[in-house]
Amino acid sequence: MSEAEIKNLEEQFEAKIAADEKIEPKDWMPEKYRKTHIRQISQHAHSEIVGMLPEGNWITRAPSLRRKVALLAKVQDEAGHGLYLYSACETLGISREQMYEDLHSGKAKYSSIFNYPTLTWADIGAIGWLVDGAAIINQVPLCNTSFGPYARAMVRVCKEESFHQRQGYEIMLSLCNGTEEQKQMAQDALDRWWWPSLMMLGPTDAASTHTEQSMKWKLKRKTNDELRQQFVDQTVPQADILGLTIPDPELKWNEETGHYDFGEIDWDEFWQVVKGHGPMNKKRLEDRKNAWENGAWVREAATAYARKQNDRKSKSA
């Protein structure tokens, strides 16, 4: 193809997205679109899978049977969401195995929030309330993103996730209505998860490299800072209902803007965790690698068995 032809195709492609038409896997797409989507969707999938680990840490210790089944179902949903997203990504011509390899080698990233430890049961509440809360804000707009398989996966994810945040908030409510000790546990969890949750919505607009292109392709509808403001605005009243204090002395309602003002985020911590220096980075990757490597003989067995069955079938035919 000549350069002019490619340019023409690109223009048609961008016009299609601008007109809210979806792009499907076999449609022509600019290489950059493919690459960006592989990066973002696989990162999203990895976040679901690695995200199972901090919460999985409490499945065996959940304090009641009701909480245990709810948590199990929630963590299982995350496996399902990872699966939907990996499948969506595979339509772009990359295998799940390759994506795992990229995760294990550290080449691919996942959401940094999962590099913090879950120290008490209240952390399970805080994760559901705050981390899922922030995730929903990020994810809902993706149901209308331009790449068809991603948008469809997200519709399913968002539908299933509707119980996750409620599950977390209900845990917090029980703790806050409980003994003094339980309430302290809840406050401690909020203290530890608040700032990482704000960071989860991504670097500030000034430091974000992808925003403009992502907006055009509908991978983003709002900037990171707008999303963060939305998160703070919706979460502060929820904390009030719980009777908990958000660990930010600068947090206050701004009558003029109609939003909450909040304090400076420690971006140095954020970048350190992204670079692999969070408290749990090593352990999370190790757990994922172990699961995959320890499962190798199982996957090989299933492949060998399927081959044998096929051979037997064709012989008897």
Binding site: L53, I59, Q76, A79, G80, G82, L83, A291, W292, R299
Partner: peptide, 15 residues
């Protein structure tokens, strides 16, 4: 079985 959640040989058997 709950101990295994998140540690299966692949996503499908994990689920």
């Amino acid at each position: 079985l709950g101990e295994l959640c998140g540690h299966g040989p692949n996503l499908e058997p994990d689920i």
